[in-house]
Amino acid sequence: MGKQTLSFTLNGEPVSVETESHLTLLQLLRDKLELIGTKEGCGMGECGACTVLLDGKTVNSCIFPAMEVDGKNVVTIEGLTDAQGNLHPLQKAFVEYGAVQCGFCTPGMVLAAKSLLDENPKPTEEEVRHGIAGNLCRCTGYIQIIQAIKAVSGQI
C-alpha cells in the first residue's frame, strides 16, 4: 500500500499531499507540510498541545490518523491570522493578558478556546474551564488564559 495521496482543506486552502499510511496528523502537519506551530507534548492525547480543528472541532493531532483528514477541513494555529497577517482576537488577548509564558501549550490552547467560543460565544467561567480542560499548561498560567478568553467573549 505504502504511499497515499490526501486532499483536504488546510487553513482555507486546498492541499494535496503524498503520505505514508501510518503517519499521524501531527506528523503530516509538522514533517510533510512544515507547519510547526502545532506542538507535540505527550504524544499520547493527554496534554492537548497538538490540538487542531478538524471540521471545526478540536482533535489531538498526535493520535489522529493522517489518513482520516482526506476531504476534511483542517485549521492549525497558522490559519488564525487574517490575510494581512493580523493576529486573531484570541491571540491578541492572550498577549495582552499575559496568558503566554513558555508558549508551548499556546497554539493548542488558543484553538481549544476558539472552538469553545464558536460553539458558545458567552461561556461562564465554569464552561471556559471545562472547555480548556484538555489542554495542560505547566507554567500554571490558567488564570490569565481564562481571563483572555473571557475578554474576547466580552465578559471582562
Binding site: G45, G48, L54, V59, N60, A112, S115, G131, A133, G134
Partner: peptide
C-alpha cells in the same frame, strides 16, 4: 471522559 478533544473523536 477524557477531554473534549478525545470525546470529539
Amino acid at each position: 471522559l477524557g477531554s473534549i478533544q478525545i470525546r470529539n473523536v
